[in-house]
Nucleic acid binder design. Structure first.
Length: 843
DNA sequence: TCGCAGCATGGTT
DNA sequence: AAACCATGCTGCG
């Protein structure tokens, strides 16, 4: 296919933006779509290079010392030492060089091994380079050759040959590639592995950290530099999605990348990848000519920032970049902050689950001097050639919930940082900064990672707190739901691309977050129903209409006649419901229910009070079984609702019809009360209906009374006019005497409100019933409110069925058993609303 | 009693 | 499923 042959962009994106020219051969290459990202690589100095050229340059122009160092026949310490010095000189000239000029990087993989003297030569690289396509390889011993072959293979398979297919098949291609790079270039070392495999050939290069003093002074004689990634390995991902925006001029890009010298097996998690801006780097390096090697960064957890003064170090980071320690006591470590002030921390570990947990102790003064708190980020870098550890920080752009102070977003270096907010700015993703670090995550991944990191390091407590937050609850969207909210940008025709049999629509602009609507077919015509934000009426729109997230009747440009909330709904809600799939109608109503939640809080409380009184009013105490109940959102300790007073489903004793436990009695009593209320309400409705009909002498504009109200007209009403009061528990005959269909059986899940719509016992899903009930009640409300009856002077009648003003506080409990109809009638409705909301939250 | 050092636990990746 | 790591717990000075 064109795609496979690499002609994809030439065919489909012929006229699209994002075309650039290879710096080497001048070939025109499209850089503006995700599909073309395999075709080129961004160059550190700017510009791009096509992959063939890049491949050539990898082997022809990459630092020869890398090859040399890999191929030296006998990796003795002496030899390595010589080499390392040589490498350093070759890399950095005869002295320290500004980091920006430090060339690459292949050496850095060596370097880090050099850092750790007793590092076993990890054979990830094994068999490596044999397959290097370049032929100018130096003959090597068979052992080394085998090791090298492997690396070569990795280079090819993992990095160099990372093709579009791989990218497309794996959304995290960027990450993969980086990991590949890491693994390709890494020589893993792990201090702990020393004891695991002491016989492993060692790759000791630099001065061993044999003593504390030595460590402090000589730690980090790194030859690595800031440009560890050779051009051909610098796969560009994000950049390519952004039409090849040139990187020049922006030094603020926070480029997260794993260190190339993170050992293969010990690749750093992305959340520890250093994300330095050039300015930050420059600030750290100050006026010196030192080379800065960003090592890793970590978001401070609550413990880290707490008073204990222990900063937990990511294991892999500690083992990769800090001196190896074999004793738990560890070593004192001298760390310099960005101001040049020196701190001494104890770098040590605790045995933990056959592993180690590395900590820096005594960080409190430093943390405090930096005014850091949980959520802020500390960065670790190394100053070359001094090998000094430098600790910087970056304030969180969004203060954690516990923050008292919300400092301006500012990094340690006094350089204004754009903070994490910039991560969300796609324009910054596409660039390569001068350090050679590449924004490489697939679109959006960066922001995601950033956000994820934040939540993952703030501790479970704060996480829990945050989940309590309503806003967070609203974010509980499934991927499918989120997809459903995305709409193509308007006025854009996608280019359709077929990749391996799948059609992809490509848009130039980002998708639009739309409002969830309900698609239906109305008389053969495809339409969608959108709900007004204000009045919740459903309006019929063309199926292809793009509905913004905040949509009201006034935005209804498709149907001017119904572009006001005062205009009634086109279809009665129950008819509309017939058009909709049940799940959709319920879901749309859940939103409404949630919306009304705030307004109903007081009513809900009243209902809870009622429930509590029902149970406790007689001096009963909750049964022991009630202690361990099924809790659910919105139910607090002491909640006595049906759910809370029962043991978790499946647990606890079975209840027989004759059971007289508190739960059963309560349920029976509540049931009877609800029945009474319902009957009374309906009879009143009937009476009102009749009266209204008499008054108006004409039917209501919309189908208002064709549900249970109408059904009840069949003749039950007269005998239903019963006062609401609780029937004593010890009189089952009274219960039977109600219109309940029960015949001596108690169904704990019975929904008296649905008695006539559903056969009793036909549904055991209590919450679902509540939900359905809420749905129906909502529809009834809708019908009433949309029917224009609220303008009826006798509107107080209608109000009783849901039109009650939000401000009115029902006092159900107090009025229980009285004739306060308003209060009594409102409760069931609010109960169902509450149930819907709870279900939503729990779901 | 307090604070700390070290270890253990369990949630998260 | 295992490793990691945030934080709780406990014993000791």
């Amino acid at each position: 296919s064109a795609f496979e042959e690499g002609r994809f962009c030439e065919i489909f994106h012929k006229n699209a933006s994002g075309w650039r020219c290879c710096e080497s051969c001048g070939k025109r290459i499209h850089c503006g779509c995700i599909v073309s990202i395999h075709a080129f690589t961004l160059l550190d100095p700017g510009g791009i290079e096509c992959i063939p050229c890049a491949r050539k340059s990898v082997f022809l122009t990459s630092n020869p010392t890398w090859a040399n160092s890999l191929f030296f026949p006998t990796p003795t310490a002496e030899r390595l030492k010589e080499l390392s010095v040589k490498n350093w000189n070759q890399l950095a000239g005869s002295g320290p060089v500004p980091w920006r000029q430090a060339p690459s990087l292949f050496s850095s993989s060596i370097t880090s091994s050099e850092l750790h003297p007793r590092v076993p030569y990890e054979v990830d690289i094994s068999s490596a380079l044999t397959k290097l396509s370049c032929a100018e390889r130096i003959p090597v011993s068979s052992l080394e050759q085998r090791k090298i072959e492997d690396l070569s293979e990795r280079l090819h398979n993992g990095c160099l040959k990372l093709g579009a297919r791989e990218i497309l098949e794996n959304g995290t291609a960027g990450k993969n590639c980086e990991e590949h790079i890491s693994s390709c270039l890494s020589m893993s070392q792990q201090s702990s592995s020393l004891k695991e495999d002491p016989s492993t050939p060692q790759f000791g290069l630099t001065v061993p950290y044999t003593t504390t003093n030595e460590t402090n002074d000589q730690f980090g004689v790194s030859r690595s530099n800031l440009r560890p990634t050779p051009p051909s390995l610098s796969k560009q991902f994000i950049g390519n999605l952004q039409n090849g925006v040139d990187s020049s001029g922006d030094t603020q890009i926070r480029n997260a990348r794993p260190r190339a010298d993170a050992r293969g097996r010990n690749q750093l998690l992305p959340r520890y990848w250093p994300r330095f801006t050039d300015q930050e780097l420059q600030q750290i390096s100050g006026d010196s000519n030192s080379v800065i090697t960003p090592l890793f960064e970590k978001m401070l957890s609550a413990s880290d920032a707490g008073r204990i003064g222990r900063l937990v170090l990511p294991k892999k980071c500690a083992e990769a970049y800090f001196p190896p320690i074999s004793q738990p006591e560890g070593l004192p470590l001298k760390v310099q902050d960005a101001k040049g002030k020196e701190w001494i921390f104890q770098f040590r570990f605790w045995p933990n689950n056959n592993s180690r947990m590395y900590v820096l102790e005594g960080v409190t003064p430093c943390i405090q001097s930096m005014q850091l708190q949980a959520g802020d980020i500390v960065t670790f870098s190394r100053l070359e050639p001094e090998g000094k550890l430098v600790m910087g920080f970056r304030k969180a752009s969004v203060a954690p919930p516990s923050d008292q102070e919300n400092e301006t977003n500012k990094n340690c270096n006094g350089v204004s940082a754009r903070g994490d907010a910039e991560l969300a700015d796609p324009s910054s993703w596409s660039k390569v900064d001068k350090s050679g670090y590449i924004a490489k995550e697939v679109l959006g991944a960066k922001a995601l990672i950033s956000r994820k990191r934040k939540s993952s390091t703030l501790g479970s407590k704060s996480k829990r707190l945050r989940i309590e937050n309503e806003d967070m609850m609203e974010l509980k969207l499934t991927w499918e739901e989120a997809q459903g909210l995305l709409r193509p940008p308007s006025n854009h025709v996608p280019s359709v691309v077929v990749i391996e049999g799948f059609e992809f629509e490509e848009y130039e602009d980002a998708p639009v977050l739309g409002k969830p609507t309900i698609f239906a077919t109305n008389n053969g015509e495809k339409v969608q129903w959108a709900q007004c934000e204000n009045c919740f009426k459903l309006r019929k729109l063309p199926a292809d209409a793009l509905v913004p997230s905040k949509w009201t009747c006034s935005d209804n440009s498709w149907d001017p006649q119904r572009s006001s909330c005062s205009v009634s709904q086109e279809l009665p809600s129950e008819e509309l419901e017939d058009l909709l799939p049940p799940s959709v109608s319920v879901a749309s109503k859940k939103m409404k229910a949630a919306k009304q939640d705030m307004e109903n809080v007081e009513a809900l409380e009243g209902l809870d009070t009622l429930a509590n009184l029902a149970i406790l009013g007689e001096g009963d105490s909750l049964p022991a079984s009630a202690q361990a109940t099924t809790k659910h959102p919105r139910h607090r300790p002491g909640c006595s609702c049906i759910v809370c007073i029962q043991p978790p489903s499946g647990k606890g004793p079975k209840h027989k019809p004759s059971c007289t436990c508190n739960v059963c009695l309560t349920v029976k009593r509540r049931f009877r009360t609800l029945m009474m209320r319902r009957e009374k309400k309906q009879s009143e409705k009937e009476a009102e209906t009749t009266r209204k009909k008499q008054q108006q002498q004409q039917p209501l504009p919309e189908k208002l009374h064709d549900d249970t109200v109408v059904n009840n007209d069949a003749g039950n009403s007269p005998k239903r006019n019963v006062d609401v009061h609780e029937i004593s528990d010890d009189d089952p005959s009274k219960m039977k005497s109600s219109t309940s269909p029960f015949k001596g059986q108690i169904d704990l899940n019975i929904q008296p409100e649905r008695e006539e719509e559903l056969s009793p016992g036909s549904d055991s899903g209590g919450m679902m019933k509540l939900l359905q009930d809420a749905t129906e009640r909502y529809l009834r409300q809708q019908r009433l409110s949309s029917s224009g009856c609220s303008e009826n002077p006798s509107g107080n009648v209608l109000r009783r069925d849901g039109g009650q003003a939000a401000g009115e506080k029902p006092s159900n409990a107090v009025n229980l058993g009285s004739n306060n109809h308003d209060a009594d009638e409102d409760s069931p409705a609010t109960l169902t609303v509450k149930a819907s909301v709870s279900t939503t939250a729990a779901g």
